[in-house]
């Protein structure tokens, strides 16, 4: 591993698995040595996972969480991309809107939970609204930055070929900014997945976040709590790596560091 030579194929899998295995062993023996009655060992969690997978309610929880993210993130993308493109395109509008946006942006979506419940009541809509808020600002900011970073040679070339303003936006500015927009979408999706879990602990009674908090409240089933956490981690990883595939599309690959 210390040489410059490419690591051999088995090493690519061996070492990451070894790290995970060491952590599991550490976890197991920490539980054994401290003789804790509350915190589950890896084996307890495994049993918890198997139990969950046999219950239909888990699949419903996963579907509910994914549905909320799809709605909230989708709405944020549909609204955020055009708004970000317009703000990037017209710096004068951006200057007016930007201070308010910068003020709203650092407010954690979690802080919006009470407000969301006043607006929408306890239920799906409140959770979707929170995810929308969480995803909206990173998407807008990525689009504004993407557009204002488009090299002026590209704009000039577009104008030179006689494009109207709308054509220039669609055929030059948008594709030139797309790599940065995709990065923004990916970040927003990651945040959405964080926020859905938090929102489900408070604002609704289904979903993976609800599973975590419900397992704790209904008799301190910490094996189920940790099992649900692991499921959340795995799904988050799958969402992210699915999104990363977009970066491999040839018409955007030029904008990423590992472009070849």
């Amino acid at each position: 591993m210390t040489t410059l030579a490419e690591s051999r194929n088995w090493e690519k899998f061996f070492w990451p698995i070894a790290v995970a295995a060491v952590l599991l062993v550490l976890w197991h023996y920490s539980v054994v040595w401290t003789a804790t009655k509350i915190f589950p060992s890896p084996l307890d969690v495994e049993r918890g996972l198997i139990g969950l997978f046999h219950k239909n309610v888990l699949w419903n929880d996963i579907a509910d969480s994914l549905r909320r993210v799809a709605l909230g993130f989708g709405a944020a993308a549909i609204l955020g991309i055009p708004i970000g493109l317009v703000l990037g395109w017209y710096p004068a509008i951006d200057q007016v809107v930007n201070p308010t946006m910068q003020l709203l942006r650092p407010i954690s979506p979690i802080a919006w939970i009470p407000v969301a419940i006043i607006f929408f009541g306890v239920g799906d809509k409140a959770a979707v609204f929170l995810i929308f808020l969480a995803a909206f600002f990173p998407i807008v900011v990525a689009c504004v930055d993407g557009v204002s970073n488009v090299p002026s040679v590209f704009r000039r070339a577009g104008r030179n070929f006689g494009l109207t303003a709308a054509q220039l936006l669609a055929r030059v500015v948008f594709p030139a900014a797309l790599p940065q927009i995709i990065i923004g979408l990916r970040i927003a999706l990651g945040i959405s997945w964080l926020v859905v879990v938090a929102a489900e602990m408070i604002a609704v009674d289904s979903g993976l976040g609800y599973l975590v908090i419900d397992s704790r409240n209904s008799g301190k089933h910490y094996d189920l709590v940790v099992a649900a956490m692991l499921i959340i981690g795995v799904i988050g990883l799958l969402l992210d790596s699915g999104f990363r595939r977009l970066e491999k599309i040839k018409s955007v690959r030029w904008g990423f560091r590992d472009a070849s």
Binding site: V153, R156, A157, N160, F161, A176, W254
Partner: peptide
């Protein structure tokens, strides 16, 4: 469009 400006190769559209 009757008069086209050619930049250094930076002007080609990478997408």
């Amino acid at each position: 469009p009757r008069r086209i400006f050619v930049f250094q190769e930076r002007g080609v559209f990478p997408w």
